[in-house]
């Protein structure tokens, strides 16, 4: 039912819901069972094509594919991308020759998965595992899955996303997916870390974290890279964490059932304090577990069906 997953903004509400529902079944089918493996994708080959290191994401995809009995090949192409080594095209042709059914691609260049999907070099399903500063759709899906698990239907829920929206693919993917699912989203960041035209995004924008927190059902803190400081996006780590960090005091002002998310890896003490990160309402570890279920769901919906009788991203079954 899904040909490629390149961007969460490509998903209809129906498709997103199907993925999340399927992920829930994946959780039920594997949780607490002695046999966690399902035979569904036996004989299928999933390639993890990582032009950029990310052990967390790669491991999550690997586990997801293996739980569905797919063969997994890890193809680390780090350093060979933009730096004139083996080109994306040659890599794609190699993978096609190896008979890859799906390619999970992580790349430092925005849009690289689009090139792979549209080029005609390979007819495998393409799954974006994070491209440059563009999108990271399975992260958004696992975040939505985690929120839905705690909050129920996200329709009308208020979700606050805080941090580097300009360079952050997680923010982009989350805003569009959460909006698709009917949530009310507010992004909070210093103006320098918001992209031009953010006012056209399906969310509200605020520079003031304290004003945005009341009424929030979930708060997602994004990683802020220290090196942004040097590029004059903000003056110092201290000033950033004072204005935009989630500390105990701000945490205390959240409603009792609100949850805290972070896509990881965290800068404790920068965007989030250790107390908040380790609190009961922090679901950060759960996010990791849920990542596997969501990725299983996407791989299942992409690969389990008839080869390529369907083109494009068709409506849910």
């Amino acid at each position: 039912m899904i040909r490629h997953l390149l961007s969460s903004s490509d998903l209809t509400r129906e498709q997103a819901t199907t993925i999340l529902d399927t992920a829930e079944e994946m959780a039920r089918l594997t949780e607490g069972r002695s046999v966690k493996k399902l035979p569904t994708l036996r004989g299928r080959t999933v390639v993890n094509l990582f032009f950029e290191d990310s052990t967390r994401t790669r491991t999550s995809f690997e586990l997801a594919a293996k739980r569905l009995s797919a063969d997994v090949i890890n193809f680390s192409a780090k350093g060979s991308s933009v730096s004139k080594g083996e080109s994306l095209k040659d890599t794609a042709l190699t993978l096609a020759a190896m008979g890859a059914d799906a390619v999970v691609v992580r790349h430092s260049a925005s849009g690289a998965p689009y090139r792979l999907a549209d080029s005609g070099w390979i007819d495998a399903n393409v799954l974006n595992a994070g491209d440059g500063t563009h999108e990271h759709p399975t992260q958004a899906l696992l975040d939505a899955f985690t929120m839905r698990h705690h909050l129920g239907d996200l329709d009308g829920r208020h979700i606050v996303i805080v941090g580097d929206v300009l360079h952050g693919r997680v923010a982009r993917s989350n805003v569009s997916l959460l909006a698709t699912l009917g949530a009310r989203v507010t992004v909070v960041a210093p103006p320098t870390l918001l992209p031009l035209g953010v006012e056209h995004w399906p969310c509200e924008v605020s520079y003031d974290l304290d004003a945005a927190l009341p009424g929030a059902s979930a708060v997602m803190m994004l990683r802020v890279q220290q090196e942004r400081m040097n590029a004059a996006f903000f003056p110092s780590a201290r000033e950033y964490s004072r204005r935009y960090g989630l500390d105990t005091q701000r945490f205390g002002r959240l409603s009792d059932d609100a949850i805290v998310l972070h896509p990881g890896p965290m800068n404790r003490g920068m965007e989030i304090t250790a107390e908040v990160a380790d609190s009961e309402r922090s679901v950060i570890v759960e996010q990791v577990t849920n990542g596997v279920y969501v990725r299983m769901a996407v791989l299942y919906l992409m690969l389990a069906g008839a080869g390529d009788g369907t083109t494009g991203q068709e409506g849910a079954a």
């Binding site: 399927t22 569904t40 992409m302 069906g305 009788g309 369907t310 079954a317």
Partner: peptide, 12 residues
């Protein structure tokens, strides 16, 4: 499974 498009799962 491969004879038709993938389907949403039913609850177990």
């Amino acid at each position: 499974l491969r004879l038709r498009p993938a389907r949403a799962l039913e609850p177990t």
